[in-house]
Design a protein around this nucleic acid. Structure first.
Lengths: 203, 203
DNA sequence: ACCTGAACACCGTTCAAGT
DNA sequence: ACCTGAACACCGTTCAAGT
């Protein structure tokens, strides 16, 4: 639980450390250009490093993603803690959901990797994704207690919702805001305002 | 527009016709088992056919999907025509959307192919996907005229919504109904009932 | 301790021939 | 006309050695 932000950066030999950094920057540009499915051999090549060196530092593609995005994704946890102190539970949740969707769109194809990771405890991204999930869970629970969000919904369903919107928005960016709006509206309870007529309170 | 259901089944040599059918059944089981990303060489192999034979009959993976699913997907168009005659525009749309999501989940990874096809006029699935889209457009427009569906939404955004739900539901089947419910609720206009109190009708 | 080049088993696609 | 086996350029992964 403590010091989640310190990932295993190699402290050993100087060239190892240098190769590590080179691989990260090469991966960053490759993912940005070709999506998370970019060729790993290509990344090693442009980093000026043997491909086995890449595999030693990052045994899987997800390890590479963790190194690149872990910090940013864990930032959603911090953000959630902050928002828990904000006055409107509902607004806090919607703000956070918008940010979460944004984070999940960092690279083309990233959402697939995130969803896979959540379901695979062996993945290097697993812990990070679960941190995101529990971050959302807190805001979700608070909003549900406040009565503005449909009660039949748990944290993992919320994660699926985030992923589904991020996936579609990545494919058709023009629809991003509408997709988000529909999701947020769908989460919103119908009877969200205090009843102003007294009409419905009888039964 | 006429006779969309007749696809190019080869009428030539007997062995060609036989190979065509063998490839289809091999593809069907391969896609069912490994998703739409299944190895094409593998499909040719289990069909007992040279791989080039596969490529001649089906130049792309999407051509194969069209041959397998085209009829079923075009069925959504027929379904839409039927539902246009049903009494409740809103119920008609939700029924159709549920069916559309179901269709898009026929194989693992299918939604990606469908969305790609819609954006690529050269794809063999393009016409089919557009037929699905226009089928949804009719029901959407009717429900919007009836005032139960948010008016700021066009057919392509609706297609994105279907795809996003199908994508997530395929990954986490347990959430399928909730994802659908959130989407349908998000489409639903808040003030959908005739105002029963007179409170809101002043302005 | 950390690195590299070469090999391995795949993939989709295309070739030069066969009947 | 329609087919096939073999080649091609890739992929991720693993090997046997190097310093």
């Amino acid at each position: 639980m403590a010091d989640r932000s310190t990932q295993t950066r190699p402290a050993g030999r100087k060239d190892a450390r240098r190769n590590y950094e080179r691989l990260l920057t090469a991966a960053r540009t490759a993912f940005a250009e070709h999506g998370v499915g970019a060729s790993l051999n290509d990344i090693a090549r442009t980093a000026g490093v043997g491909n086995v060196t890449l595999y030693r530092h990052f045994p899987t593609r997800q390890a590479l993603l963790e190194a690149l995005l872990g910090e940013s994704l864990r930032g959603l946890h911090t953000r959630s803690d902050e928002l828990l102190a904000s006055p409107s539970p509902h607004q806090a949740l919607t703000t956070w959901l918008t940010a979460a969707v944004e984070h999940a769109m960092a690279y083309r194809g990233l959402v697939d990797a995130l969803v896979d990771s959540l379901g695979d405890p062996a993945s290097e991204l697993h812990a990070t994704c679960q941190a995101v999930k529990t971050a959302g869970a807190q805001l979700l629970a608070r909003a549900q207690r406040a009565g503005t969000i449909r009660p039949d919904l748990d944290a993992s369903a919320l994660f699926s919702l985030i992923a589904s919107v991020a996936w579609a928005a990545e494919r058709t960016p023009a629809h991003r805001d509408q997709l988000l709006a529909v999701m947020l509206d769908g989460l919103h309870l119908r009877v969200d305002e205090p009843d102003q007529t007294g009409w419905a309170s009888g039964v």
